[in-house]
């Protein structure tokens, strides 16, 4: 089943002579359980792609479907975003005055879930990813890798099965970054779908499919079979 589908997506920032064509017709589908990595240099359009895919930005033309819903036709986009999509950013955006568990509970409480149930759900996802031992600590008391685990738990809590991650390995060292990718890959095996933006080849390599973005177009992808001529 296709969880995310972009078809002929373009995005132009500004207009006239100063217009920037960030995306020039990108089509991309992500199936249930699939981990897809988008690689590209800065300015290739990868952050715009992620924002458009998650409904944080609207395409100039083309369509975006999440779980079969056309984002242009959805009446309450904020609600769809909250229920269907989780985000993990480089700058983690954990709330420092809340514990790890409270951070994870937050999106569910915003959705009107009672706090006892929200806590149960938060603890379930934290346990799933092996982070239950620091559930009651504050972000300042956690390592960089642990904070990123909490951010991933927050992105997955509740019914959400699509996770959009923008350079989630941030400033982590190599084993720490590998752990985050191991976690994302395990979540995909459990049925989630992940769209990962990275400029690090070693992390992109964890994906089922790697898409190379250049100047707003998909230049290549690893799912096209090709003969090796080395």
């Amino acid at each position: 089943m296709t969880v995310l589908a972009l078809a002929g997506v373009t995005r132009v920032h500004g207009d006239g002579e100063t217009a920037v064509h960030a995306l020039k017709g990108v089509s991309l589908q992500i199936a249930e359980g699939e981990l897809v990595a988008v690689m590209g240099p800065s300015g290739s359009g990868k952050s715009t792609l992620l924002n458009v895919a998650g409904g944080l930005d609207r395409p100039t033309s083309g369509t975006v479907h999440i779980d079969g819903h056309d984002l242009a036709a959805v009446r309450d986009l904020a609600a769809l975003r909250r229920r269907s999509v989780g985000y993990v950013f480089q700058d983690l955006n954990l709330i420092t005055s809340l514990t790890a568990a409270e951070n994870v509970m937050l999106p569910r409480e915003l959705d009107g879930v009672r706090s006892r149930k929200a806590r149960e759900e938060a603890m379930a996802v934290l346990t799933e990813i092996g982070a239950e031992s620091f559930a009651d600590r504050f972000p300042d008391e956690l390592s960089g890798g642990q904070r990123q685990q909490v951010a991933i738990a927050r992105a997955l809590v509740g019914e959400r099965r699509l996770l959009l991650a923008d350079e989630p390995t941030g400033a982590l060292d190599t084993p720490g970054g590998d752990e985050i990718l191991r976690l994302l890959a395990a979540r995909c095996e459990a049925g989630a779908s992940v769209l990962l933006v990275t400029h690090e080849p070693r992390y992109a390599a964890w994906a089922d499919r790697v898409v190379f973005l250049r100047d707003g177009v998909v230049a290549d992808a690893t799912d096209v079979p090709m003969v090796s001529a080395r």
């Binding site: 690689m39 191991r182 890959a185 080849p201 070693r202 992109a204 390599a205 964890w206 994906a207 790697v210 190379f212 230049a219 290549d220 992808a221 690893t222 096209v224 090709m226 090796s228 001529a229 080395r230």
Partner: peptide, 20 residues
């Protein structure tokens, strides 16, 4: 360059799978 980069990424994916 483009062809090689995709081929090298495939190798990297295989190695990463082996590592898992």
């Amino acid at each position: 360059v483009r062809r090689q980069r995709t081929a090298t990424m495939r190798t990297l994916q295989q190695l990463t799978r082996a590592k898992r």
